[in-house]
Amino acid sequence: MKPGRAYLQKLGGPGLTLMALALLATFPLYASVYSMTLLTDILMFVVLALSWALFSAPTGYISLAPAAFFGVGIYTSAILGRQWPLLLTIALGGAISFCLALLVGALTLRLKGIYFAMFTFGLVELIKHFWLWFEIRFTGTRGRFVAVVDQQTIYFTMLASFVLLLLTTHLIRRSRWGLALRSIGECEEAAAHIGVNVNALKTITFAISAIFMGAAGAIIATRWTYVDPYIAFNPLYSFMAVLMALFGGMGHPYGPVLGAAIFAYLEEVLLTRFPYYYMLIFGVVLIITVLYLPEGLIGLMMRIRRRVVGGPDAPA
């Protein structure tokens, strides 16, 4: 990394982040209920995209499983939300997702990247169909009603899980753990031969990223009042997480945050009125991103800033 850029980040990074967080924390004091629920939605997608990027950005393994862990969280809330305190339910949603991801990761992260993608792609469908069958057969219900929590509590718990996730991402990226994850994405074979326990590292990181997806599901379920397997295990949430992270750019933690914020807002504006057009735009942006924006919006912004600020356009 060039010294100039590092300096700029040191100056701008933590200060701006703290300011933004302070703004977010005091938001309910002066904002309308509508904008608070909108922001909760945006934060939910931010958590999904950022936790996806936590594992997939450095390693290059494309996971299409976020919707599975998200759904596990939703059902944890749906089943336990009436008896258990909210925080415990959320923690349990994260914990169950963690265990499921540990199992899935241990089984499939030995496979080549494309097989892993295929596997996770089907995982959501598997859980959905299995759960649908299970519910109808053993509990005699198709869907469930969820204990409702007030908007402000939902907002703050979502914000808290976002802050925790941001912190986790930051700590992992800065540590030798983060370096090892990157080495897996660069050349997994070489990483293994210089002493990195690649399978263990991939599995545990995958599982940690699932905690946040599960937690996000457990929190947001309390606002949906009614869920069934089709609502909870909707593969769209996987695709959203992937697109948002890619579109925002994965070279920096703020990339997925930016991508998720933009798309979550677009969804709010477009989805109810023009659902098909929204999804159409979604597809077009995905293709444009893959074709022309390999480093996403954040990469584009960095490139523009480098050009404006000047200096050699050296590969960093």
Partner: peptide, 17 residues
């Protein structure tokens, strides 16, 4: 080699792991 890591980081990987 790890193509997008710096030369130093490449060697650091060996020391650290």
């Amino acid at each position: 080699v790890f193509p997008n890591m710096s030369v130093l980081e490449n060697v650091l990987m060996g020391v650290l792991f």
